[in-house]
Design a protein around this nucleic acid. Sequence first.
DNA 1: GCGTTTGTTCGTAACTTTGCGAACAGAATT
DNA 2: AATTCTGTTCGCAAAGTTACGAACAAACGC
Lengths: 107, 107
Amino acid sequence: MTNKDYSIRQERLARFAKAMGHPARIAILQFLAKQQTCYFGDIHEELPIAKATVSQHLKELKEAGLIQGEVEAPKVKYCINRDNWQLAKELFGGFFEQCQCKNDDCC
Amino acid sequence: MTNKDYSIRQERLARFAKAMGHPARIAILQFLAKQQTCYFGDIHEELPIAKATVSQHLKELKEAGLIQGEVEAPKVKYCINRDNWQLAKELFGGFFEQCQCKNDDCC
DNA sequence: GCGTTTGTTCGTAACTTTGCGAACAGAATT
DNA sequence: AATTCTGTTCGCAAAGTTACGAACAAACGC
């Protein structure tokens, strides 16, 4: 075991993955991606959880950079953060490409 | 808020994402994907954490279905579970495709 | 101004995750 | 048989996650 650390890309990918690691958050992202209305209330209606919990999940997605919020009083509008969505897409895409598994040469 | 639940696909995607939600596990998957040796000891050497912790991360990846293990006494050989890797690739691919974000029509 | 609507924050409870060292277990080596 | 090598499991501590209702805050409608 060396003193080696993780790369920035690995950290970033893990951060995105972690944010996506709950079905409610996947559902939120899909809802926003499909560009139906992006108000909190509409998101809440889609989900089987209390609004406090929805708010918490939205906060996590925002902190991970996958979405962004904007007040449109008295409502709050959320949407996909397109720059980071693109970045995540590339990171995941690159990640899944790198498997060299041919046939049964391992396991 | 209805009584609606999450779809199987959402659950599955979230499960994969959760397993990928830690830099050590990303590092493990990348190491295995690059098909360098797949023995526990080699994986452990790549990471800055104790072997008990490595074992724990491997267990999680195995339970999520992303890798599989095989005893080759006295060593243990791990490798990517290709079927599920393919499935994950498709789920993530499909997921990131579905963003309809054009220009500034939202946010 | 007063209540309503909208969403966040607080406080709390139960559970999970991450990490480690120590103990353990099985197989190989001496 | 005793030792070494390899990796898992146990027990524990610290921190984070998930969920909820209640309290709060800001703006709008009356």
